[in-house]
Structures are given as structure tokens and as C-alpha cells.
């Protein structure tokens, strides 16, 4: 592990490139409308892919994950503050882990 510093720097560079490059490539250009529509949907596609199915294995067992995410789903439908959605989900998992 003598060259660990090199590895860390290399990792830092390759994680930074995809994060920064678009700011150079797209900042000053008008995009074609297809790509604009494409980007319009990106947040929703990303969020959906981040949530499902991984959420099912986010805790020790699927049932507590389901309890937590159902509580969050209900709170989110009521459009209450995001922090409360998160705290509600965590508490839901906590209680069901205690019970089951």
C-alpha cells in the first residue's frame, strides 16, 4: 500500500471530472430541445432509481424498511417539511425494529 496517496488523488480526479465537465460543456450553450426535455426528467428518474429496489435492503429486514418508507410516503403526500419526513421514516424503522 505504498502508493495509497496516488490512489486517493486518482480517485479524487476521476470523481471530479464527471461532476465538473458539464459546467464547461453546457454552461454557455443553448441546448437542443430534445436534450432539454431529457434533462427535465433527470431528477425524477434519478430519485426513482435511487429509491427502488435498494430501499428494501436499507435496514435489517424488509418489513422495517417497508414500515419506514410507508410512513415517509404518507408524510410526503401530505407535503410536510422534508426533515419531518426523514425523522418520521427513521422513527418508523426504529419502532418496528424494536417490535419485531
Amino acid at each position: 500500500m505504498n502508493n495509497l496517496l496516488g490512489l486517493i488523488i486518482g480517485m479524487a480526479i476521476v470523481t471530479y471530472i464527471p461532476r465538473f465537465l458539464p459546467f464547461i460543456l453546457f454552461s454557455f450553450k443553448q441546448m437542443p430541445s430534445f436534450f432539454k426535455r431529457f434533462l427535465y426528467f433527470v431528477p425524477y428518474a434519478v430519485l426513482s432509481a435511487l429509491i427502488f429496489p435498494e430501499v428494501l435492503s436499507a435496514t435489517n429486514n424488509t418489513s422495517s424498511a417497508l414500515v419506514g418508507s410507508t410512513i415517509a410516503l404518507i408524510l410526503a403526500l401530505l407535503e410536510i417539511d422534508l426533515s419531518l419526513v426523514v425523522i418520521g421514516g427513521i422513527l418508523g424503522v426504529y419502532v418496528s425494529e424494536l417490535l419485531f
Binding site: 430501499v55 422495517s64 415517509a72 410526503a76 407535503e79 426523514v86 422513527l91
Partner: peptide, 27 residues
Amino acid sequence: IVQTSMGIALYVMFIGLLIPGIKKSKE
């Protein structure tokens, strides 16, 4: 148990962010 419970935090945050958007738009 704290670790496990907090393991859901980011996922429920994603849910909290996603739901209000998809509730209002069928697209």
C-alpha cells in the same frame, strides 16, 4: 438499532423529494 434505523434516512429523504413532484404531474 440506531445504525439500522438511520440506514433508511437517505431513502426516505428521496421519497420526500420525489412524491410532491409526481403527485402534481402525470408525466
